[in-house]
Design a protein around this nucleic acid. Sequence first.
DNA 1: GCCCCGAATGCTAACGTTCACATCACCGAA
DNA 2: TTCGGTGATGTGAACGTTAGCATTCGGGGC
Lengths: 340, 340
Amino acid sequence: MDVSSRRPSMADVAARSGVSYQTVSRVLNEPDIVKPATRSRVREAISELGYTRNRAARALKTTRSSLIGMLTDGSALFGPTETTTAIESAARRAGYSVLLTTVGAEDGAGREVGGELLGSGADGILVVAAHEGMVPAVSTAARSTPVVAVAARSLQMQGIEVVGVDQRLGARQVIEHLARTGVRSVVHAAGPQDWFDARSRQEGFEEAIALHGLDGAVVGPGDWTPRSGYELTNALVRDGLPEAIFAANDMMAIGVLHALHEHRIRVPEDCAVVGFDNTLGAEFQVPSLTTVAQPFAELGRLALERLLHLLEGTELPPGTPSTLPPRLVVRRSTRPERTH
Amino acid sequence: MDVSSRRPSMADVAARSGVSYQTVSRVLNEPDIVKPATRSRVREAISELGYTRNRAARALKTTRSSLIGMLTDGSALFGPTETTTAIESAARRAGYSVLLTTVGAEDGAGREVGGELLGSGADGILVVAAHEGMVPAVSTAARSTPVVAVAARSLQMQGIEVVGVDQRLGARQVIEHLARTGVRSVVHAAGPQDWFDARSRQEGFEEAIALHGLDGAVVGPGDWTPRSGYELTNALVRDGLPEAIFAANDMMAIGVLHALHEHRIRVPEDCAVVGFDNTLGAEFQVPSLTTVAQPFAELGRLALERLLHLLEGTELPPGTPSTLPPRLVVRRSTRPERTH
DNA sequence: GCCCCGAATGCTAACGTTCACATCACCGAA
DNA sequence: TTCGGTGATGTGAACGTTAGCATTCGGGGC
């Protein structure tokens, strides 16, 4: 009845099952090479004692922490909780735990966070919603740790592997759709310019505008919030409204819708509205919002898979994509396409 | 030029600065007791080598991991990213890192997750968006690790410390406000019954209905999503609409608004609508949504503070609240209060 | 009956840090 | 000059695990 408050160790398990601790270790790591009878005896002792492996000791000896650092933006404005959730559950299945690190606006260039990341001893790092502020931290970390970035194509320059949704393609799909509905002029309410995704969407917008010979302009930048979409739209109403507004994300689009409603401008008859992200509320806006759906969960899994291969030093299965296509979701905030 | 791929250790720093590894350790842990000259010499060596402390070794020796486990719901439907962000940044400031663990619907009773949590070796655990499915995992963990739960008052029974927003009070504020606007009948579109917050809001609703002698009913349960709010409202339109609908959260309220709009029912003239959470889009719904704001960030900090005191074994400063009041935010989806 | 082989298990050392104690240098008082 | 004392630094051991090698055991071929 030694109620030593200390957590049981391998030695305790070994004593209880009459073997050496090395055998206990083997039961845990390579069960096949230990005799079935012994194995089950040890297993029994493990569950009786409620033994769990000491993570620190294991990490110390193997020099691998079984930890994956996830660096994400803390501003809470950005949607993809889905991505982080997918990453976490995939990581757990692969025997890793996820160390969460948020880099808020207040952290400046995120240098401090970079140091934390390194010190954390994570085996690899996943960067989730990337903006410029993360770059110093990430490229520092990348010197000594494998890094995979999600949705931030531009980081590729730094020799960092990138997995992402093709934001430009998404923007092009939006413009093509608008063109097919007969729209001749579109304004893009841009997102914050230090976010990679915001810039890619804007670039896609500009390409597509040129390609289809539409009358296009960019206003903003906004800051991802509904309020910024609202204010940009109010300015547009003053200065002259286009036939469609393409907001950088759904939240801004919600602000756009609200402003148009206040001015009694009918959507989509007088002005069509498109968002980006297909967040949970988009379908139930008034009118329901045409937007671009991103496979957030898939993206998270893909990023983790890539990181794991980097960690194990194995090759990715051929044909594994690094870029996923977005999907335009047409709803009622844009007019129906002309089938002529 | 020994580019030994191995990370530098204290011994390396010690060799470079001509002291023993113990002195290096002291510079890191109790800088005051080492001579300033030596201290700065060691510090120099540390930065030259890019040395960071090996977390595993430290954890092994001290039996403290400097890790806080954060258990949260993975369903991505739930809002308070703000809470998790606040927790993470407060934890970092206190020298802890946050281990993220999500328990999705697929994890069943979350037993497996409980085991993971324990094995993770976290010094303490924070439970964030709690529903019944987490209870087994949490109460198992609580036997060997300090646990603080956020917003799940009912866990208190299990001897777990709880920090939360007073959900019932929030619901009462809603009903009082509605009563003051002259509303006589209210329906509560309830949230999923296995979520603690959903039940508290419903209870608060029922209390207040009785108190004010209103005509009240509960429909649902919904599942936090706009769609469920939408469908519940459609049924209400068929069966007879009340003068107000109080949705269990903002997302459901968005669905409610959408359904009412489809049926050309004016909000708030024909039917008022109230949500809960004050999520980012609420203010810019059409009409802007009256809802209950929760101090999510404050809550996260409070929970962490409580956990830290538990870990250090120190007393909380007297007057530290364990329950925070919510705040009713009146907007355009309810009628103005009668001032008579 | 001897030897060799493989399967199963045990022992020793080491990972990088911190704790407890030992040592050393130096200063001021007797 | 010697001694106790303090402030600064060094030494040994240990945390719990895994890697590498050593040992034991039983059985089959000569």
